[in-house]
Simulated assay, not measured.
Amino acid sequence: MAESIRVERRDDRVVVTLDRPQVRNAIDRRMVDELHEVCAELERDPKILIITGTDGVFASGADIAEMIERTAEDALAGINMNLTIRVARLPMPVIAAVDGYALGGGAELAYAADLRIGTPRAVFGNPETGLGIIAAAGATWRLKELVGEPMAKQVLFAGRRLNAEEALRWGLLGEVVEPDELMPAAHRLADRIAALDAAATRATKAVFAAPRDEHPRVDLEAQAVLFESPEKRRRMAEFLERRARRAR
């Protein structure tokens, strides 16, 4: 049974709530392991994943009380890095619903999501260099893809934090809503995704993530599979029927 997260399972989505409020949802090894268990489940049975926090905090970072004892061997094992890579590679889209602080490893978990929404209290930052380490769970490459290299360097080199308004302006957040609307907004976004063809969504995510030199081959191969699917035929037939009705 999970101790550091709460998991809600629905037909088309899974909601994970980071739940270590006593340490502001700091990410320790137990939480990493429990999130890996959720990832394994979603790899077997692909669904949308929503990740959120508790008590006005997404995640304050990696658990420093645990990190201080980690060694070079632990660093090379990529404990947190492997989690964010796995989250990013899940077959269906991942939504991070961010209220309050998303710092350090918490920010990197949010960066690994496909879509992020937040509240006016959301704050993103990577203070790792102030602790004598680097942001080694994906921020050094994901953040510049999300906000551009100059701003990423501000965050990573100079400890700049991005509030919700800045995160929205720089594209890190897609939407900002009041705290009591955060989860309804996350579910509305999940509803929009769930209304589309799951196979086409999975293929789109996989092709989107493919290296540049694999295009257009991967696009055409994925499209070839979808062109033969019954769901494609059904959805296109319904589209044509709707258009015909409007034309009458």
Rank of each mutant, 00 (worst) to 15 (best):
T52D: 11
G56P: 05
S229N: 04
R161M: 13
A206R: 14
G174F: 09
G100R: 05
G105P: 02
L182V: 00
E175N: 15
G125Y: 08
V177P: 00
A203L: 04
A247D: 08
A96Y: 12
L90E: 02
N25E: 02
L189Y: 04
F157R: 15
G159W: 10
F58E: 11
A200S: 13
K153N: 12
H36F: 12
A244V: 09
K153A: 12
R89Q: 11
E228V: 14
E149R: 15
A200M: 11
W170E: 13
A40G: 07
D11M: 15
V32I: 06
V57C: 09
E238K: 14
D55W: 05
F239A: 10
L90H: 14
R142P: 03
R30C: 05
E181F: 15
V94D: 06
I85L: 07
I50C: 05
N80Y: 13
F124Y: 12
K47A: 01
P120W: 06
R169W: 05
L182W: 04
F124N: 02
L173E: 04
L162I: 02
A136R: 13
V98C: 14
P184W: 15
E228H: 14
P216M: 09
L109I: 02
F124C: 02
L173N: 07
I79E: 08
M31Y: 09
R242Q: 11
N126R: 14
P21C: 07
L143G: 01
M236T: 11
A195W: 01
L226D: 00
A198L: 11
D28R: 15
V15T: 11
E231K: 13
G132W: 11
I27Q: 00
L115D: 09
A247P: 08
R70I: 00
R44C: 03
T140S: 09
L49D: 01
P91D: 06
R235P: 06
D55Y: 14
I133M: 02
R142Y: 10
R246I: 00
Q22F: 10
E43V: 07
E175H: 13
I68A: 12
L49C: 00
A113W: 09
V87Q: 12
D213N: 07
R233Y: 10
G106R: 13
V32Q: 02
D74Y: 11
A75W: 12
